[in-house]
């Protein structure tokens, strides 16, 4: 075991080794590994608030951020996580590489793989892209969002935010609202929150809820007021115009009126309700700034902070597995 820098002394040892070489999907995890990850992430939250944020769990290792889709917070979050753990971090994006010259996803990955990175963090617009890559490379692959499939690190950081706010995740009523159909965040959250025993509602117009979502072990509600009634957590999703084919909602103003979160609607939720959003927000479309910026109810800033810690926990857990190999 590598020595731990200050701030991590209180991190409990993991109950079990990280289950997989890759981190592709919430389905790769079990409740024990989730608990380990969240405990470790919690310790990193404290470490990240120190002046010296560096720990050396990834010392000597190389982390490649391969982002085929533009991203600010996830990419910088993984970059910071890697650097704080002592890894060498390389960022690659389509605009600055030969991906725009017609090289395929797999060719790019195989090329990068030959440079012996230890961890490849991938974001791609196609569902299943991270899984495909993981079959073609030797290094560990971390899914930073694949199409409309999964964004598992986001679900973990959401769970950590909830756990810190409420002391638990199990038993909470979580309303995931808005554009569920195009949301990988929603899919990962449904998988993780139901695993942890939360009660999940998917709330949105039928055009934005996937077919047969009621069979995911969640409650589907096509009315925002009923959907957030009594909810402990209201998670608003970004309306993903860029993924939409054709018109799914009539107008932004109708959407905000019916599906946007404002003070009046929020009053229907639990008195201790917390509001979350994976970002970036469309203010005045799915969420009113008044709600988003109210630190008494909004966990949105916490989510960003938790993001770095959770990603450090993911990377450190995978690295520990690599050490043991």
């Amino acid at each position: 075991m590598t020595p731990i820098a200050s701030g991590l002394e209180d991190a409990p040892p993991p109950a079990a080794p990280f289950p997989k070489r890759h981190f592709l999907s919430i389905g790769d995890l079990d409740p024990v590994s989730v608990s380990d990850l969240l405990d470790l992430a919690n310790a990193f939250v404290r470490a990240n608030r120190q002046v010296n944020k560096k720990v050396d769990r990834l010392k000597g290792r190389t982390l490649v951020n391969l982002f085929f889709e533009a991203s600010t917070r996830t990419q910088s979050s993984f970059e910071l996580a890697g650097k704080r753990l002592g890894a060498d971090v390389v960022n690659m994006s389509p605009r600055t590489s030969s991906i725009s010259k017609g090289e395929t996803l797999i060719d790019t990955a195989v090329t990068l793989n030959a440079m012996q990175p230890d961890i490849l963090v991938v974001r791609h617009a196609s569902s299943g892209a991270a899984s495909l890559l993981s079959q073609k490379v030797d290094c560990s692959v971390v899914n930073a969002g694949d199409g409309q499939h999964e964004h598992p690190s986001q679900a973990l950081l959401d769970a950590l935010s909830m756990r810190r706010a409420f002391g638990r995740v199990g038993g909470l009523t979580v309303a995931i609202c808005g554009d569920v159909a195009h949301s990988r965040v929603a899919r990962s959250n449904v998988a993780l929150l139901t695993m942890l025993g939360a009660h999940v509602r998917l709330v949105g117009p039928p055009t934005l809820i996937p077919a047969d979502a009621a069979r995911w072990g969640v409650e589907v509600v096509h009315d925002l007021k009923r959907g957030i009634a009594g909810a402990d957590v209201v998670m608003m999703l970004r309306l993903q115009f860029e993924r939409m084919q054709g018109s799914l909602v009539p107008s932004m103003r109708e959407y905000f009126r019916l599906w946007g979160l404002d003070r009046e609607k929020l009053a229907l939720a639990s008195p201790n309700v917390k509001v979350m959003h994976p970002g970036p927000m469309n203010r005045g479309v799915e969420i009113d700034s008044d709600v988003a910026d109210d630190l008494a109810v909004s966990l949105i800033q916490d989510q960003v902070e938790m993001g770095v810690a959770v990603r450090m926990a993911i990377l450190a857990s995978i690295a520990a597995r690599l050490d043991n190999r």
Binding site: G128, G147, R187, P210, A211
Partner: peptide
Amino acid sequence: AAGAVATESEFSGRMGLAAEP
């Protein structure tokens, strides 16, 4: 069927695949 690569179902929904009914 525009853009669809799978049949519309609980499975394709979970997999995040564009689907046709």
